[in-house]
Design a protein around this nucleic acid. Sequence first.
DNA 1: CATGCCATGTAAGGGGTTACATGATTTT
DNA 2: AAAATCATGTAACCCCTTACATGGCATG
Lengths: 180, 180
Amino acid sequence: MIRYILLGFLKYKPMTGYELKQTIDHSTAHFWHAHHSQIYTTLRQMEAQGLVTSQMVFEEGQPNKRIYQISEAGRKALDEWLAQPLLEMSTIKEELLVRLFFSAQRDPLQVLAELAFQRQLHQQKLAQYQALTEIQHVEENAPALQRDAAFWRATLEMGIRYETTYLGWLEDTMRMIETL
Amino acid sequence: MIRYILLGFLKYKPMTGYELKQTIDHSTAHFWHAHHSQIYTTLRQMEAQGLVTSQMVFEEGQPNKRIYQISEAGRKALDEWLAQPLLEMSTIKEELLVRLFFSAQRDPLQVLAELAFQRQLHQQKLAQYQALTEIQHVEENAPALQRDAAFWRATLEMGIRYETTYLGWLEDTMRMIETL
DNA sequence: CATGCCATGTAAGGGGTTACATGATTTT
DNA sequence: AAAATCATGTAACCCCTTACATGGCATG
């Protein structure tokens, strides 16, 4: 999966593993993230498979970089993957819900504290999303990427709605526990 | 993670791997699922670690079963896990959003078809959730599990809200693509 | 002087998926 | 006669996480 994200970004321009990590963190991370270790190893693999090429860049006073570029085979692999529609729903793994499911015998105050902490995390996430200006910047300054930006915005919109729903549910669930 | 789900269910009553699989499919599957292969191997591991015990049951005209029971160590492990509050947000892995993020250059009709298919899947999921009567059954017939049922219902409620949000977003995103 | 950022990697392990494998009974 | 349900397991693999490891430059 992460391969296609890397290919997707490399289609826009050549980048280093480090830059790809930054890019992912600022865009797809809320629906698919990756650690730098995975990114570096996957890029190596992909190079061995001919999906990308790389070249080292040595600059004085700066750390060495390895810049990756998508190959024809890489473009083809990405296009083929996109052409094959997704036929299942992605499965969710929400640890908090697992914990809540089995929390009937726990001290309600501890459960409430845990939910309150999660509320904080989700509030931060939501605020983060609403503060993102990268897409708007592209929309205003890169007319060639208008169409792309619309799709990016759609995924961001899902992130915002998800966090909003989550927060509402946390509130209601806390109220439910309080009145038990 | 799956270990705690298994322990959580075994706390209610002894069960076979098969029954645990069924139980998970009808309750926690929308926020944490597992294949039977994982369940069987994890139960074996857990038995080796003393978290559960098992005994074979041979009955005429019926397949052999291995019934698992939670041990004292198992109860302790579960309680300790629940006592340790979750300090991070679960990370999401939504393949559809990855695909959409990189779909600007795809044929809009194909993207729309893919989203329409996902809408169908999510409608089915939502209908499934709304048709679940197990919790209500417990609420009406097992007064000792009232409290437990309230927590189960909360997780189901999240599933319903999630699917509702997802469907609304799919509709809006499809409309956005149509008007591009 | 310490923290943070830039930049890249390796290694071990775990968790989870997919596929292989079997076989009896019940339902359509 | 075929498909579904009950019932349990093994094996290979892959993806991902966590930890280990290094080192220079810039900023406070």
